[in-house]
Design a protein around this nucleic acid. Structure first.
Lengths: 228, 228
DNA sequence: TTGACAAAACATACCGTTTGGTATGGAATT
DNA sequence: AATTCCATACCAAACGGTATGTTTTGTCAA
């Protein structure tokens, strides 16, 4: 019942993939079990064989979400930064670079489900929260290291800033969804980047002169070739 | 076009109030028309007398949301700031101060509906986007004034920063909903405040090179380089 | 042969919507 | 002023569709 991952049968996997796609696009309630089965090329009999009910699918989808995004970010080409701070910026630039195309292709399943289901299906919301938190945790080490490297004192923890990056992304997604303008999400990421630049800027030494240039991968914004 | 606002019948108002309360709490799909009628003390007949269908209620609820939040913020005690920047900070502090109690009491109806309905009910999402945008616009004047008072150059517009405040708030709400921890929303506001503090006290954002003499507006798109 | 899985039809409940009807109040008519 | 008329506001009940979840039967592989 709880140990869902030991065997990842193909059908179950297909249902989960369908769930990620459709729920990201239409939301949880608007995605019917029939929709999922059609998308997965299966029938309801098999759906309810693999999942006790729709809520269980929601929980499993949140877990599947972390399972499928973790490799995406681990394999992303932003871990090559020399300093920890550069890796943090590379993460942010990467997050910005993938904001394009369809909303469902870059928005966050966990944020979507948490918002919609936090009252009606707390279990799904909790699983979604875990997904967000665990993803933020992958950033925390670099942020922590960057804070130590900078020899400054900060009024917040590395965890807090890591989580904040996710908050800004989630907020950007909502703006993009509500206006249809992807630039709103990109702007949010830009502000986030600027915030972190300012946080780590050494005010005693010459400000902004040398470092703005060397660590600005944004220069490639003209042709976003950062992601395959 | 819309004869909705001239007469605000008591029943219609009660349905809208019920909608704001219930949708903020449970989401749009999880709030049935029956729920709304029970909450408002009416029957479905009367509901569909006032609203063509449930989607029309969603649109009206978004508009009602702006109508009921505008006075809240206009009447809030944060407009007394001497400088424009102080008024911006007062707004942020106010936003943080109301994060308490039940989630449904401080989260944003517009963000909730936009996220859930951007695909299935675009009209509702658009109305929600308008609500967010128009609220952000009430900040824009103060931000604009603060930017001018500061005699600095910024790599973004006042509008962009105003909208960003809403993005951070929306993101904070999602984190609070997904974890159940209101402090996550408060932390997001803290980071936002710190960002604005840094923006207005550090002289680092502008490239500081030689774009001082010819202040052609075209030049300002050079340094941030965002906005693909 | 057994047991995991798939397909299809089925059962039930609920949801949005419609229909038909009632009460009220003001305008129009007398 | 009294009566008729009608639009508005509201209510009660039922309808049609659809969603979730079940059951039944079939299949394939170990």
């Amino acid at each position: 019942m709880e140990q869902s991952q030991p065997k990842l049968h193909k059908s179950r996997q297909k249902i989960l993939d369908a769930a990620v796609r459709l729920i990201r696009m239409k939301g949880y309630a608007a995605t019917s079990v029939d929709d999922l089965c059609t998308e997965a090329g299966l029938t309801k009999g098999s759906f309810f064989h693999h999942f006790k009910d729709k809520e269980a699918l929601g929980v499993a989808a949140a877990q599947h979400w972390t399972a499928m995004t973790a490799p995406l970010f681990e394999g992303a080409p932003y871990h090559g930064g020399a300093s920890a701070l550069e890796r943090v910026f590379a993460y942010i630039d990467f997050r910005k670079s993938i904001i394009r195309g369809e909303l469902a292709d870059f928005t966050c399943l966990a944020g979507t489900m948490a918002q919609e289901l936090h009252t009606s299906h707390p279990a799904v919301a909790r699983a979604s929260g875990d997904a967000i938190t665990s993803h933020a945790a992958t950033l925390e080490a670099d942020i922590q290291a960057a804070m130590e490297e900078s020899c400054k004192t900060f009024g917040f923890s590395a965890e807090s800033l890591a989580i904040h990056t996710q908050a800004v992304l989630q907020g950007g997604f909502i703006l993009a969804k509500s206006t249809g303008d992807l630039d709103h999400a990109r702007d949010a990421v830009d502000h986030l980047r600027r915030y972190i630049e300012l946080l780590f800027q050494d005010r005693s030494v010459a400000p902004a002169v040398s470092r703005v240039q060397h660590d600005s991968p944004l220069a490639d914004n003209k042709n976003p070739g950062e992601r395959t």
